[in-house]
């Protein structure tokens, strides 16, 4: 096994063109590595491009420019046949548990989709056994296999998506809000499962979530995105104890605590302002409309992502 990071993302760009004359820079020049057997947490405002990053890494979207290397293989450069082989090694747990499950199939068939596509089970009995094992792994029971997605609650559907991703024994999983619809006990169960699999099999994760305490728990490094760009990126403990970017600071200060007395007594400083549109973005720092530190320079020139402390990258000129 080489020391090469399993995932290398370089200057990745993914634009959408909603209308003539409009360009929506969903992912704009994003670079990072994810070493084998580690987890990168990815957080940020709704609509900042997290899902698009995940989907473009897996080539569910074609990139506009930049590159993604998986185990040294150029994901966007390989032939169809080679790509199919890759899809077994990389999986995604989709954010939307309602839209991502085909309502015409039973939950058992949905979970077995990858198994069938890649011919992973020799006999019917082996397939059934595997489905049951996967359902139980994610805290569902075997009776669920014969039921249809619309009969499930949000959290139950999300677990079906997790079982489906695990079914092909992948090496890399993009977990896109994989636990957000689950109660905390099942969240704990899924997080433990993901971390156990990582310990045993060396799985690598891109973990996208709004729940910062879970991100903190599971991630080795954490990246913060704002409007298509990574604005801060550091080792997880460093990021949480020493946030540098004003957006990251606002984010951490806004986390509610499961403690009513503390919540009642806390001083609230709401971050004001709206997230600007990613369509035809203006030059300059994209956070400047909401930033307490913004100066004229910020409004005109893009801040560069620089290394403020060893391994701690931040894109803000005033820190």
């Amino acid at each position: 096994m080489s020391d090469l990071p399993l995932i290398q993302v370089r200057e990745l760009k993914k634009y959408f063109y909603p209308k003539k004359g409009q360009v929506l820079k969903a992912v704009d020049n994003v670079s990072f590595d994810i070493p084998r057997g580690t987890t990168l947490g990815l957080v940020g405002e709704s609509g900042c491009g997290k899902t698009t990053v995940g989907r473009t890494i897996l080539r569910l979207y074609e990139r506009d420019s930049g590159s993604v290397l998986f185990d040294g293989i150029d994901v966007h450069g390989v032939s169809r046949r080679e790509y199919k082989a890759l899809t077994r090694r990389m999986q995604m747990i989709f954010q939307d548990p309602y839209a991502s499950l085909d309502p015409r199939f039973t939950v058992g068939d949905i979970v077995a989709e990858g198994i069938d596509n890649h011919g992973l089970c020799a006999t019917r009995a082996e397939r059934t056994e595997k489905i049951y094992r996967l359902l139980e792994m994610v805290g569902l029971n075997r009776e669920h296999a014969s039921r249809f997605p619309h009969e499930f609650s949000g959290g139950q559907r999300q677990r079906v998506g997790i079982a489906r991703a695990l079914a092909v024994d992948p090496e890399f999983i993009v977990c896109d809000e994989a636990i957000s619809a689950l109660d905390v006990s099942i969240q704990a169960q899924v997080i433990n499962l993901l971390m156990e699999l990582q310990g045993e099999l060396g799985l690598t994760y891109l973990f996208i979530a709004h729940d910062l305490s879970m991100v903190r728990h599971i991630s080795d490094r954490t990246a913060v995105m704002y409007l298509g760009q990574v604005v801060e990126h550091a080792e997880t403990d460093e990021l949480f104890t020493n946030p540098l970017h004003p957006y990251t600071k606002g984010l951490l200060a806004a986390v509610p605590r499961a403690d009513p007395r503390w919540e009642r007594s806390r001083e609230r400083r709401l971050m004001t302002g709206e997230v600007p549109s990613p369509i035809n973005p203006q030059p300059g720092c994209r956070f400047c409309a909401r930033c307490p530190l913004a100066t004229d320079e910020c409004r005109h020139e893009d801040p560069e992502l620089r290394e403020a402390a060893p391994g701690h990258f931040v894109a803000c000129r005033h820190v």
Partner: peptide
Amino acid sequence: DEPTTALDVTIQAQILE
């Protein structure tokens, strides 16, 4: 029903307020 699950915590704080 889960009104802020899809939002970042800064926007969540605004909605809850």
